[in-house]
Computed example of a mutant assay.
Amino acid sequence: MDYMSILTFFYSQLFVTPKYPEQSCKGQVYIVTGANTGLGFEASRHLVRLGADRVILACRNLEKGEAAVKDIEKSTGRAGVAEVWSLDLSSFESVKEFAKKVDTLPRIDAIVENAGISTEKFKLFEGNESTITVNVISTFLLALLVLPALKRSSQKHNIQPRLTIVASEVHHWTDLPERKKGDSIFDTLATPELSEMGQRYPVSKLMDVFCTRALVERTTSSYPVIINTMNPGFCYSELSREFNGFAFRLLYKLLARTTEVGSRTLVAAALASHDTHGQYMSDCMVEEPSKFVRSGEGRKTQERVWSELSAKLEAIQPGILKNI
């Protein structure tokens, strides 16, 4: 564990408040996944408030999504802007169907991939451990499937759309121990007796940072889409609903940001400049990722993770890597 990151975490939670979003989004179109609750919901509210023409809330539970839309309309006074689309990241077919709908949009200014899960209970989705399926495989399946639509928007409207992957500062707190336990990282993560589920959420977020960096390394400096990853900080969220220990609840009460304050970081990444392409953002600014990510061993691990993920994505959707 990088102990300096622990100090940075406490400083950020106690003394840094991300800036309230004020930038106009007039005429623009946004997609936010995992948007019926938590950070995605509050980010969607901000985007509607900032004047966006259309904000698509991608949700697994449509009923909760419709309730979120009504709440956003009531608080912003803007009806007919937010809408709900179905997306279940535990299903590759759901991701593919969602991406087909995205492909019909005439304009997209940003897609914020916020949806994720945190659990210490081992189970399989689509043949992989559930956290890895949702937070990594489906997240990048969607990312690569929507890149052609984002690039078309860039050309048609002379804009630089953003693709934002929501990671976390907890990626600092792991070095992916499963990398040492077998030839295949993903196979090891899908094997109960080899898995360290207490570290699974940090591992998934480390893999998100790795894969964002690896993806961007395969683009050019003039790439028409800004791809970044970011840390919202420790926030009140349903993501932590499985964790009810006294120590965690005390930490939550003392340190957690409100969901609205945390959501400002998502909006900042969705509106960020080209300087953030391939970068990790924290507190709305570009920051260095973990020491492990920047190390020689981290570099090797990144290439292993990307190679294995690429093979999985090609198996799910042949030819998908050509979308980059």
Rank of each mutant, 00 (worst) to 15 (best):
T133W: 06
V225S: 02
T276V: 07
P177W: 10
V55D: 08
K100Q: 12
T8C: 06
M207E: 09
A43C: 09
Q23H: 10
R304M: 10
G65M: 01
A43M: 08
K151I: 08
V203P: 00
I111G: 02
R60T: 07
L206F: 00
S263E: 06
I324W: 00
V32I: 14
R213P: 01
E129T: 03
E97I: 05
I6V: 15
S5V: 02
G319Q: 12
D103Q: 15
S222F: 13
D175C: 07
R49E: 08
K64D: 04
L147P: 10
D208A: 13
V32C: 05
I117C: 15
L14Y: 13
Q23I: 09
L142E: 01
D187Q: 12
L163C: 07
S75C: 07
I227T: 01
F9A: 00
C59E: 15
W85T: 09
R162G: 00
R299A: 14
D187Y: 05
Q199H: 10
K100G: 14
P224H: 12
H172M: 11
R304G: 04
K70P: 01
Y30V: 02
A67G: 11
T191E: 12
R54E: 08
D208R: 05
V203I: 09
G127D: 13
Y11N: 12
E63W: 11
A190N: 09
G182W: 12
D283E: 14
K121L: 05
F92W: 15
D208G: 06
S221N: 15
F92M: 14
T133L: 04
R60F: 12
G77M: 12
D187R: 05
V305N: 00
I159W: 13
Q160E: 13
V261W: 10
T212K: 02
G262V: 05
S12R: 10
P177Q: 02
V267T: 00
E83Y: 13
I72C: 06
E42S: 09
T76F: 03
D53V: 01
A272G: 15
S118I: 03
V29N: 03
E314W: 08
T220V: 11
R299V: 07
S75W: 05
A190Q: 06
T188L: 09
C59K: 02
I56M: 13
L215H: 04
I165N: 04
K123Q: 08
T104I: 06
Y252G: 06
L271R: 01
T164A: 11
H157T: 07
K121N: 09
S263H: 06
F243H: 14
L266D: 03
Q160F: 15
G245K: 11
L254N: 10
A79W: 04
D71G: 05
L266I: 03
F10D: 06
D103K: 14
L254C: 09
K253C: 04
N228D: 06
Y201H: 02
H274F: 14
P202I: 00
H274K: 15
H46Q: 13
D2P: 08
V55F: 14
N128C: 06
R60P: 00
K312W: 10
A43P: 11
K74V: 08
R241N: 14
F140P: 01
S118T: 06
E193H: 14
P21G: 01
L141D: 00
